[in-house]
């Protein structure tokens, strides 16, 4: 009945309408993402989304590190000793249960944490973030570019075991 060009046009219109609604609902998030202002400290509130680790960009990781946030390395100890973000605390996801008490003694729950692991393909920092939120940490960020993006940007890397 309806010829293909008409159907195609309607399909494109449906896609455009859906995308417009999505952008209208999420315009602040998208705007923040494109201007690099994502997950500003004020965004951490008691909303359900805030109970998940919040993604941060490299630029913001640098700012956070300069203002006293604690980098947390979710990779295993061997990778940590080969190179990590300056001042990072090693808390491998696999050892999180055993080491969490010690970590809590070392780092106050009100500190901002920046978790990272091996870049975008690596879910460990996100999973560790969920555990840390459950353990009471209020401001948990995940740097999804992880150690590779930090190193490749030519930023300082610390070596040595924990």
């Amino acid at each position: 009945m309806s010829p293909l060009p008409r159907t195609l046009l309607d399909a494109i219109l449906i896609a455009a309408l859906g995308a417009t609604i999505g952008l209208a609902v999420n315009h602040r998030l998208v705007g923040d993402a494109f201007s690099g202002r994502l997950a500003a400290p004020a965004a951490v509130a008691a909303t359900p989304a805030a109970r998940l680790p919040q993604p941060v960009l490299l630029a913001e990781v640098r700012e956070l590190a300069a203002t006293g946030a604690v980098p947390v390395d979710a990779r295993d100890a061997a990778l940590y000793s080969e190179g990590h973000l300056p001042g990072a605390i090693s808390l491998p996801l696999g050892e999180a249960d055993a080491r969490l008490a010690g970590f809590r003694a070392q780092v106050d729950v009100r500190r901002t944490l920046v978790l990272y692991c091996n870049g975008y393909g690596c879910p460990d920092s996100f999973d560790l973030g969920l555990q840390l939120i459950k353990a009471g940490y209020q401001d948990v960020r995940v740097f999804e570019g992880g150690f590779p993006e930090w190193r490749d940007a030519g930023l300082p890397v610390e070596k040595g075991a924990r």
Partner: peptide, 23 residues
């Protein structure tokens, strides 16, 4: 995590795709 898009575009896709699917 798919590592296909520049960082901010991941947010653009995540903001629009669900609504296109819903509609």
């Amino acid at each position: 995590a798919y590592r296909l898009l520049p960082y901010a575009w991941n947010y653009a896709v995540a903001s629009t795709l669900p609504y296109v699917e819903l509609l």
